[in-house]
């Protein structure tokens, strides 16, 4: 069974993010993927502050170059923000059209915009033109990042696949399945449970039951969060085998346009059999 992580980051150089010292080069991510039997990861460009556009362009170039030796294992997502205006759109076109990035990321918390602002449409239109998904950081506690705003955005763009990252990043919202209920209002939102609390059923089983197993993704948010923990949560829930195949990797491969990749020859659960 193929395993694919819908949310990871790499940091070749040391930096400080969320008060933490981070250095997590591509080689370390690959090593961690190997340790856990993860075949592919979506690596999302991640500036640690609001960057000038030129610096963002450099970040995208660096990410593409650093991950190139592992392109069979790593897909990339570009960082988007409406504050860059038309030049930002050009950069998105370059990442998706020329550099081969397979998704774009919206982070309303760090970039300080409203997820449903009309200015975001220009970024989403690039995704629509290239048939790539939009990964949206959601957080109930952050003005502009609330999951209900993603519903509004997704409603305006019915042809684009959106991923609600972190399921609203709120324990109560997770446990009460509220974010999932919101996603159920539209067909083009998938959910991804990285960086969520220790409730495995609310992270995987209940979303699959409510939305359908084809709309739920496994993700880790390495390196601040640990791949092993999200994989354990997935292993703890009793999913039918065909559901597990979708959540563990099939769904991500499909939305990234990689569904023709063959499964890993080592068909095994996330952890190794003890």
């Amino acid at each position: 069974m193929l395993s694919a992580d819908a949310h990871a980051h790499v940091f070749e150089d040391e930096r400080v993010l969320h008060g933490r010292v981070i250095r997590y080069p591509t080689a370390t991510l690959i090593q961690e993927m190997d340790r856990h039997g993860v075949d592919l990861a979506l690596v999302i460009a991640r500036p640690s502050a609001q960057l000038p556009l030129d610096d963002l362009i450099q970040l995208h170039d660096r990410l593409a170059a650093d991950t190139e030796p592992h392109r069979a294992r790593l897909a990339l997502a570009a960082w988007a923000s409406p504050r860059f205006g038309p030049q930002g759109v050009q950069e998105l076109e370059r990442t998706v059209g020329t550099l081969g990035f397979r998704a774009i990321k919206l982070h309303p918390e760090q970039e300080q915009f409203l997820l449903d602002d009309l200015a975001v449409d220009q970024c989403v239109e690039v995704a629509a033109a290239h048939g790539v998904p939009v990964i949206a950081h959601t957080a109930l506690a952050v003005h502009g990042a609330e999951p209900w705003r993603l519903v509004r955005l997704a409603t305006r763009h019915p042809g684009v696949t959106f991923v609600m990252a972190h399921l609203g990043a709120d324990g109560g919202m997770l446990q009460s399945l509220s974010a999932v209920e919101l996603a159920a209002d539209v067909d083009n939102i998938m959910v991804e449970g990285s960086a969520t609390v220790t409730d495995p059923s609310a992270t995987y089983l209940e979303p699959a039951r409510i939305l359908g197993p084809e709309r739920v993704l496994y993700g880790s948010n390495e390196p601040i969060h640990q791949m092993a923990l999200s994989l354990l949560k997935l292993d703890l829930v009793n999913l039918p085998p065909d559901w597990r195949e979708l959540l563990a990797g099939g769904n991500l491969m499909r939305i990234l346009g990689l569904a023709d990749r063959s499964s890993s020859p080592e068909s095994q659960p996330s952890g190794a059999t003890a």
């Binding site: 933490r20 010292v21 981070i22 250095r23 997590y24 370390t28 090593q31 961690e32 340790r35 856990h36 390196p223 601040i224 640990q226 092993a228 994989l231 354990l232 292993d235 703890l236 829930v237 009793n238 999913l239 659960p269 996330s270 952890g271 190794a272 059999t273 003890a274």
Partner: peptide, 17 residues
């Protein structure tokens, strides 16, 4: 786990301090 007894490699590959 629901998948039987599973082993997760420890310690983690890299923890950010």
């Amino acid at each position: 786990t629901a998948m039987g007894q599973q082993s997760y490699p420890v310690p983690a590959g890299a923890i950010q301090p």
